[in-house]
Each structure stands twice: as C-alpha cells, then as structure tokens.
Computed example of a mutant assay.
Amino acid sequence: MLENVVKDKYDRPILSLRITISNRCNENCLYCHHDGMVSSKDEMTPDELYKICKIAKRIGVRKIRLSGGDPLVRKDIVEIVEKIASLDFQDISLTTNGVLLGKYAEDLKKAGLDRVNVSLDTLNPETYKKVTSMDYLKEARAGILKAVEVGLYPVKINMVIMKDINQNEIKDMFEFCKEHGIILQLIELIESENCDDDKFSANYHYPLEDLENKLADIADDVRERKFMQGRKKYYLNDGEIEIVRPVDNSKFCANCSRLRITPDGKIKPCLLRNDNLVELISHIRKNESEEKLEEIFLNGINNREPFNTD
C-alpha cells in the first residue's frame, strides 16, 4: 500500500500536502493564524503551484488540499485546480469559508476538484457575525448546498468549538449536516499567534475530550483514521462526526502524514511549529532542477518532529 512513499525519520509516511495558496480572506475570524502574510502580487502562480505538486507527486504524495485565507478569493482558482488535477492525484480537496462556493462549485468540480471542507462554526447569524466579523451566513449556507448538489463529495463542515461562543450549537449543526448528507468535523481550538489578546486560548479553548467520551458511549460505530493523526469518526443516527484534537494529543502528531506549504512558499513540516520552515519558492523561481527541488522537499520532511514519539 505504501510503496514509493517517502517516510520521515519517525517512519511516518508523507501522503498529503496542504498548500495555503492565499492568506487573503473575505472574513476575519477570531482564531485565524494568517500564516506567512504575503500580498496578492507575491502569491504563488498557478504554474508554481503546479511545479510544487509535481515534485510532491514524485515523492509519493497522494492527496492535495488547497487552503487559505480563503482560496476562492483567487480569481485563478479554477485554473489552479485544473493544473493540479492534470497530475492525477488520488484526491484534490479545498477548504473554504463557503461564501464564494456557490459561484465556483460547479466549475471547480468540472476542473477536477474532488471535495470541499467548509469552515462554518455556527448556524446562528449573531454568533456568525461575532466569530467572522461579517454577515455572510446566507451565502455560506447556499455555497454548502451548491457543493452538495454538484457532487463535491463528501462535503465536510469544519466547526471550531469555542468556549462561551458555540459549544452549545453542536447539536444544531449535526442535524443540519445529517439532513444534507454532510460530515461534521469538530475541531479543538489551538492558540492563534496573531491574536491581539494574549489570553485568547485561555478565554476560548474548549477541550473536546469529554465530548469524545460521550460520543464513544452513544455511537453506533467508531473508527480511527490511521493516517490522519489518529482521528476518530463517530457514526450515530445516520450521521457522522469526526473529532480533530491537536492540543495535548500525542496521537495527532504521532500519526500525522501531512506536509504543508505556507502562502509565502515555505515548507512547513509541523502544524504546531514555525521554527523549522524550509524555503522552497525562491528555488522554483530560479528554475532549479526537479532533482534539487525534491532534495529541498526531503530536507523539509527531515525537519518533522512528533509531539510524542512513544
């Protein structure tokens, strides 16, 4: 199953690459990291993104995820997906806030996008505005339903759980997801390095361990995703909930099979660290050989460190 796949020094296969293609966004969420801020004129071009994905394919990466900011703010997003799809990956997905998804969903499907994850933390207009600083809930919901309609399957909703903001809205979101055949991913909040409030994490962090235990008790079935940080999927009442807990969760790192690219073109070996980035885009812009670029990728992989090696 894992032939021709590069593994890091802790024997974790690198199966997935997540590329932040823009940190521009039409919302301003409380918890946003704004990783590696760059201006629109300095964003990686479709051809540069194609070359990054081509090298990733050489080392055995099977899945590509495009993220932001919001990737749909890029007017060339359909071209980007078309170029990457030509490399014949097993799966190409995109994470968006859904505001522009109604506009692009059909064209993205035709271009080769397989599925979408939509960041939506609430179905309550007041909570939505508090979290995003915007009033686009109607557009986001319409975008989600359009994605379901055109077959960007499975559609997933990423719901970041925040204390005293939306922890009481999980049931409503689950019912919405069940109604439309959507998978609900509940995400434990991690600290934002760019939030003005030094007490951000303490104020809003809501641990999901107790919720996981409750789900385990009532679920019809529980499955663990071996190569996705050991995440567990809970099946109940014809619906599906997945829990993402990167905080104090050794399984999250020990089972991680994902490498990341920042919007300014650096390899980011670890989600929770920014002190081991590896420069990549300048080498691509110098037209260095694919062999040299592959060597740089391998250097980034060699920088990966698990939260817990036990």
Rank of each mutant, 00 (worst) to 15 (best):
L101G: 00
G69T: 11
G102V: 04
Y50N: 13
T96L: 10
D91V: 02
I77W: 11
K63A: 03
A56D: 12
K83D: 02
R58Q: 13
Q90H: 01
R58I: 15
E82M: 04
K57H: 15
E82F: 01
D47K: 15
R62W: 08
D70L: 13
P46I: 12
K54F: 12
L101V: 02
K103I: 09
L87D: 03
T45N: 02
S86I: 01
K54A: 14
V73H: 07
T96N: 02
Y104S: 00
I77H: 13
K63C: 01
K57S: 11
I92E: 01
I80N: 05
G69Y: 11
L49A: 09
F89V: 08
K51E: 15
I64H: 10
I55Q: 02
L66F: 15
Q90N: 02
G102H: 04
I64R: 04
L100Y: 05
S86P: 10
V61W: 07
L94S: 07
V81S: 08
Y50G: 02
E82W: 00
I64W: 07
D88S: 10
I84F: 01
I80F: 12
S67K: 01
G60E: 11
E79S: 11
G102R: 07
L100G: 01
R58V: 10
V99M: 03
T45L: 10
L66E: 07
L66N: 07
V81C: 05
I77T: 02
I80V: 15
I55C: 13
E79K: 11
Y50A: 08
S67G: 12
I64P: 06
T96K: 00
I55V: 15
R62Q: 15
E79P: 00
Y104A: 09
L87I: 12
L49Y: 08
E82S: 12
L72H: 08
T45V: 12
A85C: 05
L94R: 10
V81F: 02
T96S: 14
I59E: 04
S93H: 00
R58P: 07
C53L: 08
R74W: 04
P71W: 10
K57G: 09
I59H: 03
L72A: 01
G68C: 06
S67Q: 03
P46C: 13
S93I: 00
E79H: 06
D88L: 03
S86A: 13
